[in-house]
Simulated assay, not measured.
Amino acid sequence: MHHRANALSPVPSNSLFIRERDFGGEAVALDAAPSAVRVELLGGARTIAVTVVPAEVELATASLTGASRAAALRDLDAALGAPDTALLLYVALQRARIWRRAAVVSAEPSLAPLQLPPLAHGGLRAAPLDATMHRLFLACDEAGRALLAGRFVAEAAACLSRHAEAFAGNAWCRAVHAGRLAREQYVAALANTHQYVRYTPRLLARAISVCDDEPLRDHFTRHFRGEQKHDRLIEADLRYLEADVEFVLRAMAPWGPTLTFMSVQESMVAFHGDLTGFLAAPFVAEGLAARVGPLVLDDLADNVRRWGYREPARATRFLVSHVREDGGDDGHWNATLAVLARLLRDDTTQQRFLAVLHLAADAFTASYDAYADYLTLFTPPLLADP
């Protein structure tokens, strides 16, 4: 069944305030682990609210096949057809989108504004999350959409924050912290990184050449200037570690997970011409460097010393430079945030950006898992090993 996009009442233009709390009354950050959250909208005729919860922990939906990929809505406290209901529900489902849920489900007739078709299960109704959120966004008036768009960068940052937790626990980082990273596993990371870092200025140059948006073109130009010869830092690190630099430069093919990350950004700029989507790759790489990099550098230096190299700083120039340049209030990542705040202004653009973000982050994490897992043959034994 097709639904009219304007089936919901528009959001009023008056000032509204959003509050998101757990059932103890404490504020819940957007990047918090999935749990029941009460979302309140204040400032209209009265406070209205709804609860969003992971479907697998909700009694009415826990037994559903695929519950772990859905979010449930319940306890809607709003008059049926209230003009700001669409905004409230969109805000609640933003949290479900951060949880990477693909469907929304509810047992409550009061949630009829969502236009959820019935499921053949216990009076439940459900729909794909993307189409539902799109209809809700269109049901808001200009002021409501502006309020929602003002949350898009925070939503993207929350998605990346959850990816950073996963990245910090990848096989490569675990080996670093345990003092069991092999030289070959670190060389693999540097060598594969070189495969795409050497192309970054060229991709940025292409973006500059096709960009008609002057502020965005200026951002790419500044980034282009800051990315010059970073591949040379990797080469210097590799030479200090006595790796085969000529192989890396002339003959090496990137490993599959690395090639996936490369393909994401290359396709965005070279095939699709989607410069907002193109920003997702540096958003991921720089964001993870800024968040996770400082946590591994000291332990990485200890691993380098264990391999017999007395000057770890000579083996970590590339990583150290990116932790420094990508992090901080004036780092590359925060500069990208400022640009995205202007570009992410509608639901379709946001959904596409988040899809590219997740694709890039999954590939980036998988690549570091591969640098360790593909080469476990070189992992040093524990002292207790025979």
Rank of each mutant, 00 (worst) to 15 (best):
T349W: 02
L337A: 07
L343R: 15
H358V: 14
D326I: 01
D326P: 05
T348L: 15
T349H: 02
N334T: 11
R324G: 08
T349N: 04
L344S: 06
R342I: 09
D330V: 04
A335Y: 00
L340S: 01
L343T: 07
N334I: 06
V339I: 15
Q351K: 11
F353C: 05
F353R: 07
R345G: 04
H332V: 04
F353M: 10
R342Q: 12
V323L: 02
W333A: 01
D347W: 05
R352Y: 09
R352K: 12
R352N: 13
L344F: 04
G328I: 06
L337G: 10
T349A: 14
V339W: 08
Q350T: 00
R352P: 03
V323Y: 01
L344D: 10
Q351D: 13
G327K: 07
V323E: 05
L337N: 15
D347S: 13
D329I: 09
V323D: 06
Q350I: 00
W333L: 08
R342C: 03
R324F: 02
A335C: 11
L354W: 02
G327C: 04
V339H: 10
D346I: 11
H358G: 09
D329N: 10
Q350M: 15
L337T: 10
D346C: 12
A355C: 06
L357H: 05
A360M: 03
T349Y: 02
H332F: 06
A341N: 12
F353Y: 06
H358Y: 12
Q351P: 05
D330K: 00
D347K: 05
R345P: 00
T348H: 11
H358N: 15
T348S: 14
A355F: 08
L344E: 06
V323S: 08
N334V: 11
D330R: 02
A355D: 07
L354C: 06
L344A: 08
L340W: 08
D330N: 07
A341H: 14
R342L: 11
E325D: 14
G331D: 06
D329L: 11
T349V: 13
Q350N: 11
V339K: 13
A360G: 02
T336G: 09
D326Q: 02
G328F: 05
A360P: 01
H332Y: 08
